[in-house]
Nucleic acid binder design. Structure first.
Lengths: 243, 243
DNA sequence: TCAAGTTGTCTATTATCATAGACAACTTCA
DNA sequence: TGAAGTTGTCTATGATAATAGACAACTTGA
């Protein structure tokens, strides 16, 4: 590691550079459409090899944040995604409307049992069998959000396998005969990303996340699924609709 | 990387394991003085090699979080600093459809000129004279939120002095003859506290904050005041009511 | 047209990361 | 005392990270 780092931090240098540049974009130091400093200049400011900078830029380019033009420079490509909050908010609508392609990826599905809080949210007894689904959502190529969803294992047997094939919570519920549902509650707070989420969201350690706890209910107000979602704060902003 | 990770994240595996264990300690899954699972068992749960686990444990040991005892096990060394991930304090009335009772303490009032963004929000020209009001809000004795409000200096002359005496944005607007107004837009995102806000909010550096940008308008949709508020994320959660 | 500056690609070298297997040293408990 | 289970240490191998230098391909502006 360069700089004063004598002990290895376990985070690759190119990742630190990439995070630094991304932060510059997120904070507006590099505006959308503008040219970044040259690779040599970036290498000097971070005191790393030019190849290391190129690795960082390649990672950003893969996610669509920057675009390199040979002979000219590297340009900032994207902006924050606006995420309106109202009942019936569904990810595909939002990102679809913005012209970005929604993608959901199953990370993991496993069995779980209801804690007191989960039991209360879902209207079940403590210890009731649940299905836990971990999923990752993208806009374009950038990971936006990690969600952990819990459903009753009795009401939705095999929910994990279904989600793996349909890749959408709406379609999962449709598969079990639920055509309509709505958002019962949404709580928003913020936190710091942990290492696991950081790796999956392609976020630097210590970066802020928006934490959204929500529960969806059917038309009879019976809880269907409760979720905890973690959004990369620098890529998302929430728009609260009020009359 | 193990699991399904085919793309390298730039974060070393041992670091992910170390963070995972540290999180377990912080959240009390591994109590102080207790024995951690064996290296083989940890390796299996994270699906990595035992040497990778040893690297992770070595990093934690170097920081004094754990202590290994040959032939016996590895033990949690320190008492965690317990802080709740989210408090139960509800501020729905501040951020939801309401958001009208900022009873707070005036920190500073000064003159400012409209940047492009402020001008757009307030429907003024760039460079138009503004009054900027910095205020601090408490719940009990804990500081909760810092707000920076901007108003047109032409429409609200002496707004700073008025706010200092009435200590409420609603009453300030009443003073200028505005009895009714509503929230036009609310944008929520998250960030890291800066040094100035950290001191005022009694927050550690690097802690997350909820950033709320909002604009209030009169019944004719004319912008009155635009605000940027920073909430200590660990003391606040937002409740979004829908339906 | 030409020079300067940019990104793209190649080879090469060294250090770290992650895995794998084997065995030693030690503790615990029956 | 002995077996089982724990951490400690050694060697070894392949993949990745980071450095270094050279040059090609291209854009920009004088």
């Amino acid at each position: 590691m360069s700089l004063q780092d004598t002990t290895s931090s376990g985070v690759a240098l190119w990742r630190l550079v990439a995070d630094g540049i991304e932060r510059g974009i997120a904070e507006g130091r590099f505006a959308a459409g503008e040219k970044l400093p040259g690779e040599m200049e970036i290498a000097e400011t971070y005191r790393v090899n030019r190849h290391t900078v190129r690795r960082a830029l390649a990672a950003l380019a893969e996610r669509g944040l920057v675009r390199a033009e040979r002979g000219s420079g590297t340009y900032v490509e994207v902006q924050k995604i606006a995420y309106p909050l109202r009942s019936r908010t569904r990810f595909s609508e939002i990102v679809g409307a913005g012209g970005r392609e929604p993608r959901g990826q199953l990370i993991d599905a496993s069995e779980d049992v209801a804690s007191r809080e989960l039991a209360r949210e879902l209207g079940l007894k403590v210890g009731a069998p649940l299905v836990r689904i971990e999923s990752l959502r993208f806009a374009d190529r950038a990971p936006i959000c990690i969600s952990t969803s819990w459903l009753s294992a009795e009401r939705f047997p095999g929910a994990g396998e279904v989600f793996a094939s349909v890749r959408s919570m709406t379609k999962l519920l449709e598969h079990f005969g639920i055509r309509d549902y709505r958002r019962a509650s949404t709580r928003i707070t913020a936190g710091i990303v942990d290492a696991t989420d950081a790796a999956r969201l392609d976020l630097a350690l210590g970066r802020p996340i928006l934490v959204v706890d929500s529960t969806d209910v059917d038309p009879d107000d019976k809880p269907l699924v409760t979720k905890r979602s973690r959004f990369a704060a620098e890529r998302v902003e929430f728009l609260v609709e009020n009359g």
